[in-house]
Amino acid sequence: MFQAKTKNLKNFSTSAERFEGANLLCPGCAHSIIVREVLNATNDHLILGASTGCLEVCTAVYPHTSWDASWIHIGFENGSSAVAGAEAMYKVLKNKGRLKQPDRTPKFVAFGGDGATYDIGFQWISGCFERGHDMMYVCLDNEVYANTGGQRSSSTPIGASASTTPSGRISYGEKQNKKDMMAIMAAHGAPYVAQVAPNQWRDMVAKIQKGFATEGPVFINAMSACTTEWKFSPEDTIAISDLATDSLVFPLYEIIDGTKLNITYRPKNVIPVRDYLGAQGRFKHLFTKQYEYLINEWQARVDAKWELLQRREEACL
């Protein structure tokens, strides 16, 4: 398997940007940071797609596009299938000798939010991965339907106040735990599945490069801290991301061929989950006597998950 080494910026692409400014994403939006890190990880030609969501509605509103590579959007649920279709066409035209630039091999990447990935587009992604299209699917996981104003998705974590699961006099907000999309995608037997966060850019770029070097479907779950819906100041996007990765709420790991699990980032100082929750307005209501127990449960869940990941990793050694 390809070993990516990205110890410093020299290994990060020196290529020019292929994602443009003056898009309509909020100031401080992590989506944009993630997209840049993905696109800048390669000098290869790209064929891109997106599902309906923040990224799509902010980067392709007529008469402007922010995409310097070919890009397609159809609907909310089918960004994966659109790119899979393009990939199928590439294979045919290559076989039939009809490519206009036969010397170039583009990479195929589909972006989707957690709504488009965990919920409405789940079946389409599953189909693409089962069929083994040579493509990368990147989930921009901001744990909420941010584009439509902050409704809960199946990625929204317990206790978060979302617009369809608001906290109130008798409710602490979202009641269900976040769906484990990483495990589900690994269970497809995908050759490469990885969780990334834009603040840990070395780790992220290494994984993206590994993904691009992998033949077959690659799933990337990218934590995308949302200044608008998580309710923190725009300048704190990276600081919040640091809290997420260093509290292990968002552990960074990869699963190869559906089985071999590697933890790729071990924080030097693990931060209490409380600190991560406390930095965001969506969890503000938990910091009351009434809901203190939920914070303790959160910590216990994160500890248990970290323990599980470590055991899984050891089991593969």
């Binding site: 992590a30 940071i33 840049r36 996007t237």
Partner: peptide, 13 residues
């Protein structure tokens, strides 16, 4: 790296 808006102009690092 972290600018979300491609607004830090950097050349040759």
């Amino acid at each position: 790296i972290y600018c979300p808006d491609m607004s830090i102009i950097s050349r040759d690092k």
